[in-house]
Design a protein around this nucleic acid. Sequence first.
DNA 1: TCTAATACTTGCAAAATGAAAGTAATTCCA
DNA 2: TGGAATTACTTTCATTTTGCAAGTATTAGA
Lengths: 139, 139
Amino acid sequence: MTYVLEILGDKWSFLIIRDMLFRGCCRYKHFIESDEGVATNILANRLKKLTQHGLITQCKDPENGRQKLYHLTDKGLDLIPSILQLVKWSGHHDPHSVLSEKIMHYLDDRFDEAVDIVKQQYLQACDHEQVSAECHPFN
Amino acid sequence: MTYVLEILGDKWSFLIIRDMLFRGCCRYKHFIESDEGVATNILANRLKKLTQHGLITQCKDPENGRQKLYHLTDKGLDLIPSILQLVKWSGHHDPHSVLSEKIMHYLDDRFDEAVDIVKQQYLQACDHEQVSAECHPFN
DNA sequence: TCTAATACTTGCAAAATGAAAGTAATTCCA
DNA sequence: TGGAATTACTTTCATTTTGCAAGTATTAGA
């Protein structure tokens, strides 16, 4: 477990992965525009670190050379169960949680299915390179 | 998910909970003696924070008034699935992982059972106030 | 009552973070 | 073709957090 904490042992790394999964973030400016407000230097640092550890990849946007695209690797996608468990815990214990009962039941009763759904939706969103302005229901 | 990161968004908090679950740590000196080497001020700070957020409780050791006992609350125990998913991910992707194949199969195939086992073992260890020198197999 | 043990707190240097401004590469548009 | 705008960073510097070492308070035991 020390291994995962070396890589993700700070809140920004987790939030970057969450934003990729649940909001379809795949460009620098998407992350910058995200709610929590990362500093640009921290974001660059974390994207580099996550890339070095093989959780995400970087490539030039073939349609716009001044943009880069960030995507989760299989190793990164493998974090979905961990992240959904954290989402679930937050949903149960955060007094200000905004998760619907429906979603919570889903996470409680059909966890593995939820993992698949998140993964499939992410892969689809990557294909269409769509970024949703509003959040994914699991966020 | 912001909620859990507010509380556990640094590696020490996670490691403290892990040490409680898998090594039966329940006293200040246990945490200090633990492998990773927390600084005493950081440990005190995190124990306070975790207590304020209701993940652990502090009480005087009835048998030794100069010691305090730290125990996980239900809210803290509820983190077992999250932590085991992180352990599982580390087991799969850490090139230097020391987890046995048996344990990995357990986590892969009978996750919910593993969660129960960890919880029951923790509660038992609390009753007997035993701290294991060697690690819990899931560590 | 003196000493040891335990659980902290304090002080200070070093590292990490955050905000603001600057830079480099690319594209858009006149 | 050349200047402005976009995007993805980097740099600088003040503030915060961390980590180490040393000190303190309370309790236990001889």
